[in-house]
Every structure is written in C-alpha cells, then in structure tokens.
C-alpha cells in the first residue's frame, strides 16, 4: 500500500484526472483504509473552491471605474492631437 506522503503527493494529478489507472487504483485503496487522507482530499479540494469564490468577487469599485474612464478619455485626447 502507498503511504500518506505518496498519497498527498499524488492529490494534484488525481483531481486533474491525469493519473494512470494503476496509480489511481492504489490511491483509492489507500483512501479506503485511511480516513485522514480522505479528510485531507476533501479539504484540499474545498480550499481551492472557497478561495476562488472569495477572491473572484472582486469588482472594480465605482470610483475606480470613473477614474479609469476619464484616464482613457484623456489618453485618447492626447492621441488625437498627434
């Protein structure tokens, strides 16, 4: 049986689905016997999801949007004069 260290080293490729069948199988066998690694797998996956959901929420604030707009207008004006 593979050990926990090997199991965790393989997590990335396991989630990507890029492990070959044999490796995938021995990993799943490990999971069956090792609840801590299942907990690790679940929280490893959750980490990505909750970080993405949190950091993805960034919107440009209105005042920044306005500043960018007038900046663009200014730049275009300068280009026009050339």
């Amino acid at each position: 049986m593979i050990c926990c260290k090997e199991c965790i080293d393989l997590l990335y490729d396991y989630i990507e689905g890029s492990l070959d069948q044999d490796t995938s199988k021995s990993l799943e066998e490990h999971f069956e016997e090792c609840p801590p690694c299942i907990a690790f797998l679940n929280t490893y996956k959750s980490t990505t999801t909750i970080c993405r959901d949190t950091l993805n929420q960034i919107e440009i604030p209105d005042e920044v949007r306005r500043a960018l707009q007038s900046f663009l207008k200014e730049q275009k004006g300068q280009q026009d004069k050339k």
Binding site: C3, C4, P36, N42, S46
Partner: peptide
Amino acid sequence: LPSFNGAGFQQEKIQDWSENT
C-alpha cells in the same frame, strides 16, 4: 506543508471541515 512520520503516514489529526464551510 503536511508532516509525516518515518513510515510516511500522517502525523497530525486531520479534520474534515469541507462540509461545514
């Protein structure tokens, strides 16, 4: 990074909090 004992098994207690977020 996770820590392991000499045989490569998990050393710390791992809680599954993924359902409760």
